[in-house]
């Protein structure tokens, strides 16, 4: 489902980075582990189409990601990729519900209010639907951010250090939530982190040096 081969990325400074080949099956869940500066976030940027490789190919499903033009790649990302951040990164001027529904709207899919509220209920944040992010706790915001990455039923869920700012209990809870939701939706999950606490939760691990 995700096939990444011969990737090389050139930073604006001129430094070049070679990244390992990765192949993930549809629905597979993988932990991409590596220390700071090993290129974890760069790999995520390349997989999501936010960055362009100097060399190599990335295929997600039937799509050759970097063969798409910029605009088409944006549309592809909106429809098929869900991104979870270390910080929730919510839009403060929009309600919690609208923050979640935003990804659906950008993907061009109709907003199914009932389905979203049901998902919010499942994550125990339904009561926050009409509130604004500033009215929510950090944990609640994190769940809103996760649901936003799932709401449009993407093929690929990419999580960038989703647990590194959390204590162990919450880190494991967030990772568990991600895994459950990805499985529920049949999406491929790649969690990029330097957080070793998550290693036991994943059967597939890719190490970056």
């Amino acid at each position: 489902m995700l096939l990444s081969e011969g990737l090389q990325f050139a930073y604006p400074s001129g430094t070049s980075l070679s990244l390992p080949d990765v192949s993930l099956e549809a629905g597979e869940q993988a932990l991409i582990l590596g220390p700071s500066g090993s290129g974890k976030s760069t790999l995520l940027g390349l997989w999501s189409g936010l960055l362009s490789p100097k060399q190599g190919t990335i295929q997600v499903g039937e799509t050759e990601v970097h063969a798409l033009t910029g605009r088409d790649r944006d549309h592809w990302r909106a429809r098929h990729v869900g991104i979870v951040y270390q910080r929730p990164r919510l839009i403060e001027s929009q309600s919690v519900f609208n923050n979640i529904a935003l990804q659906s709207k950008l993907s061009g899919k109709p907003v199914d209010r009932a389905a979203i509220l049901a998902d919010m209920e499942g994550l125990q944040i339904a009561h926050l639907a009409d509130r604004y992010p500033s009215d929510c706790s950090v944990g609640e915001q994190q769940r809103v951010g996760i649901l936003r990455a799932l709401v449009h039923a993407p093929q690929l869920i990419l999580a960038d250090e989703p647990t590194s700012a959390l204590d162990t209990k919450n880190a494991l809870a967030v990772a568990d939530l991600l895994q459950q939701q990805a499985k529920l939706r049949g999406a491929t999950l790649a969690v990029v982190t330097h957080d070793d606490r998550l290693r036991p939760l994943f059967s597939r691990t890719v190490e970056l040096n």
Binding site: S48, L50, G70, R71, D74, H75, W76, R77, A78, R79, V81, I83, R89, I91, E92, L102, Q103, L106, S107, R148
Partner: peptide, 15 residues
């Protein structure tokens, strides 16, 4: 700026 960057990451085009 953070919001705009997020919107781009979520798939919003520059247009």
């Amino acid at each position: 700026k953070g919001d705009l960057s997020l919107l781009r990451a979520l798939g919003a085009t520059p247009g």
